[in-house]
């Protein structure tokens, strides 16, 4: 341990991007902005979010679920981030005054509560109940109580993606900007 500490920490910057592969928020060079991508991201963002909620809800009987839905929602944020850089996607948590770890914690908490809730009704841990209803527009709807657990997973995954964007995306960019002479 002691010998290695004498060598200078040259490894420190090996993972820094060569040139910036994600456009920063305040674009110093105007030509680096891609208007096409920015417009596309603006159109796609709400659509992808709606699709992610769809995946979350149908997940019990069809392909989808909290994990898949959360990833798709996370991708919507990734798209905004790539198009707009730090000013859009990565800072979204800051704008909502919500730190990504909080989202992770809330998701986890919701999932654990959903796991314990059946015990209050005298059922085993993680048991699931089903509610059916006829809703005017949507038609016949089957909802299961394990959807709550899926919502927890959904939040958790979005939190993880946002945290990755914050630490690995804008964090690396910031380090690159600061270390540049």
């Amino acid at each position: 341990m002691t010998q290695q500490e004498q060598t200078p920490l040259t490894w420190n910057h090996w993972d820094e991007p060569e040139g910036e592969w994600m456009l920063p928020g305040e674009c110093p060079v105007r030509t680096n902005r891609t208007l096409l991508l920015e417009m596309a991201a603006r159109l796609l963002f709400p659509t992808v979010l709606v699709f992610s909620v769809y995946l979350l809800v149908v997940g019990h009987y069809a392909p989808g679920g909290g994990f898949a839905g959360g990833l798709v929602a996370g991708l919507a944020f990734v798209l905004r981030y790539i198009a707009g850089g730090g000013a859009e996607g990565a800072e979204i948590g800051t704008r909502l005054n919500l730190r990504p770890p909080l989202l992770v914690g809330l998701g986890l908490l919701l999932a654990v509560i959903a796991a314990f809730a059946p015990v209050a009704f005298g059922r085993p841990v993680l048991a699931s109940a089903k509610y059916s209803a006829d809703v005017p527009v949507l038609g016949h709807v089957d909802l299961v109580s394990s959807l709550v657990l899926d919502v927890g997973v959904y939040l958790l995954i979005i939190g993880v993606v946002l945290d990755l964007l914050r630490s690995l995306g804008s964090g690396i960019e910031r380090d690159a900007r600061e270390s540049r002479p």
């Binding site: 770890p101 909080l102 992770v104 841990v125």
Partner: peptide, 24 residues
């Protein structure tokens, strides 16, 4: 009694969630 068996697995997850939320 069967619920008790799940506690050693679920309680630390609950604790992890709370410590993330209470990370201030």
């Amino acid at each position: 009694m069967t619920t008790l068996v799940t506690l050693p697995v679920l309680l630390p997850i609950l604790g992890a969630a709370l410590t993330v939320i209470g990370s201030r």
